[in-house]
Write a protein that binds this DNA or RNA. Sequence first.
DNA 1: CTGTAAACATTCGTGCTCGAACGATCTTCG
DNA 2: CGAAGATCGTTCGAGCACGAATGTTTACAG
Lengths: 172, 172
Amino acid sequence: MTNDERLRFVPAQAYASVEDMRAAEIEDEIHALTTAMRVIAQAIDTRSKAVSRVSGLTIPQIVVMQAVATRGEVTTSLLSRHCHLSAGTVVSILDKLEERGFVERYRNAADRRIVHTRLTASGESALADAPTLLPPVALDGLARLSSGERRAIVSSFEAVAGLLRADGGVPG
Amino acid sequence: MTNDERLRFVPAQAYASVEDMRAAEIEDEIHALTTAMRVIAQAIDTRSKAVSRVSGLTIPQIVVMQAVATRGEVTTSLLSRHCHLSAGTVVSILDKLEERGFVERYRNAADRRIVHTRLTASGESALADAPTLLPPVALDGLARLSSGERRAIVSSFEAVAGLLRADGGVPG
DNA sequence: CTGTAAACATTCGTGCTCGAACGATCTTCG
DNA sequence: CGAAGATCGTTCGAGCACGAATGTTTACAG
């Protein structure tokens, strides 16, 4: 369903130069990369809905709770950096979690701008019962790969993340 | 800001068996992978806002318009499969594009359930003026890599996409 | 024919996500 | 002390995204 536009089959002589050929190849790879990104993003959304149906928690909610659990009493801005979400997004997720009694928020006595968040007992048990972020099928598949393949995947994702993180939001 | 939890430094003797050590290593890799996914997802959202500020089109809107452009007169369901978006999402994007006069929709005469979409003239020019989906910094960085590194990245993303696509939505 | 099933697009409800704008609080400097 | 500026969290508006439910249309069975 998606690989029909890769069947262009253009002979090398059609390119004016080796540079053009290389540019076209890179363009194809960029297209394949962005397509794969879309598939992954869609799969994560689907997984989030499935997780929510059985556990009552969405993936972003679990991510935030995990960060709260490992860091103890965190500020909102630290949570924002650690989860790679904007401050506004974190607040809206914390609102829902607090409403259900999974976390508590309270202001710092010394600096009353700062808000700390900690897990409640019911939050801890809900987090302990939460399913994995990636679907089991994918975890199995990853575990079945060779160590080298897994490392290549991880470093590829980190490389792309590094390239994208290095963007100031200036378009072209 | 993100690599502080990788400094655990547990000696090999702490593991009960080689299997445990391997499992812990895989777990670390899974964590690194999901973190990178979050960074990428966040960067894509940021890029979408930046693109929208200068072009008036968001990334999903551009993706849909590109699919319409390359496929000619597409049905909604074909668009949904080609862009890896649910049908409902495609409809909401098409609503906005039609409202601005970038696309036209009309029902098939033979089968009146089917709705076709085609680009208008202003849609074509808007699409031609649209910036790249990935930020220029990232495109430069990718182009600067060796051919082998780029291929490794593309195949890594496609491998993960394949693993995630193979999920029926059943949680664990 | 007629009623049932399937396919297609749409609407609806909920949640995530961002940036911009805002108010509250603290710090710094005159 | 008091004003200017920085920092922190929150609120707001717009858009994306999913699945479920809905309505319309076609296909098929009897």
